[in-house]
Simulated scan of single mutants.
Amino acid sequence: MNDQALGTICDYLKPKMFEENAQVIEAGQPLNVMLYIIAGSMQAYLPIRAAGEACPSTSFETLEKGMFVGEQLLDWAAKTKTFYDQPVSFKTVRCAEKVEAFALTVNDWKTLVVSRDIFQRSSKSEV
């Protein structure tokens, strides 16, 4: 990806604020947003099934300033041909404290790929 493409992506970034304990992403649900954390921290964990109900696991990954959440959308946007194959999150992500982030939604990625051609594709018909 070249500097011009990165600049175009930055034009689509939107600031987002999340309160402490807010659930941002739920495991098993479509991944709708990619976040770049600029302040605060989040916890990502794989849910455990106990008696048919999902429970938070005791092991989690801490996501902090400078880290991404939902980065699978970048890979998806670069490879998708139809946009009907939106990825599903395999982790639940909650805010450990108040979080500030920059967001790119699925629709932002669709617009960037279709109208801006930020990824090297041989033709628009691939999208």
Rank of each mutant, 00 (worst) to 15 (best):
N32K: 14
F68N: 04
M42G: 11
L6V: 14
Y12H: 14
W76A: 05
A44W: 04
T82V: 10
Q29T: 08
C10A: 15
G70L: 04
Y84I: 11
Q86S: 07
A44L: 00
E19F: 11
M17C: 07
P87C: 10
K65E: 14
E19K: 14
G7S: 13
P30A: 03
G40W: 00
V33R: 13
T58N: 06
P47S: 06
M67V: 00
K79F: 04
G40T: 01
E20F: 05
E20K: 15
K65I: 05
A27S: 15
C10W: 11
L13I: 11
L73R: 09
K65Y: 03
S59T: 08
D3E: 14
K79S: 11
V88H: 11
I38H: 07
A27F: 06
E53S: 06
I38R: 07
A78M: 10
Q43R: 15
W76S: 06
F68A: 07
I48Q: 11
Q4Y: 09
N2I: 06
K16R: 15
F68P: 01
A51E: 13
A27M: 09
F68Q: 05
K79G: 01
G28N: 13
F18A: 10
A51L: 13
I9L: 13
I48W: 04
G66A: 10
P56R: 05
A22I: 01
T80K: 12
Y45Q: 11
K14L: 08
A22T: 08
I38K: 08
Y45H: 13
V24C: 00
G66C: 08
L35W: 02
K65L: 04
I37Y: 02
W76C: 01
V88A: 10
Q43H: 09
C55Q: 10
E26C: 04
N32H: 07
Q4D: 08
E26V: 12
E61F: 09
R49A: 06
C10F: 06
D3Y: 06
D3C: 03
I37W: 01
M34K: 05
F18Y: 15
S59C: 08
A54Q: 10
M17H: 13
V33Q: 15
E26T: 12
Q43C: 14
N21K: 15
G7W: 08
A77H: 11
I9M: 13
Q4K: 12
E61D: 09
T80R: 07
Y45S: 09
K14C: 08
P56L: 05
Y12W: 07
V88W: 03
L31D: 00
A77D: 12
E20N: 14
N2H: 04
D11S: 14
T58C: 05
Y12T: 00
R49K: 08
Y45L: 06
L63C: 07
K14P: 00
E19N: 14
M67C: 02
K81L: 03
L46I: 10
A39Q: 12
N2L: 07
P15S: 12
I37R: 03
C10V: 14
Q43N: 14
Y45T: 06
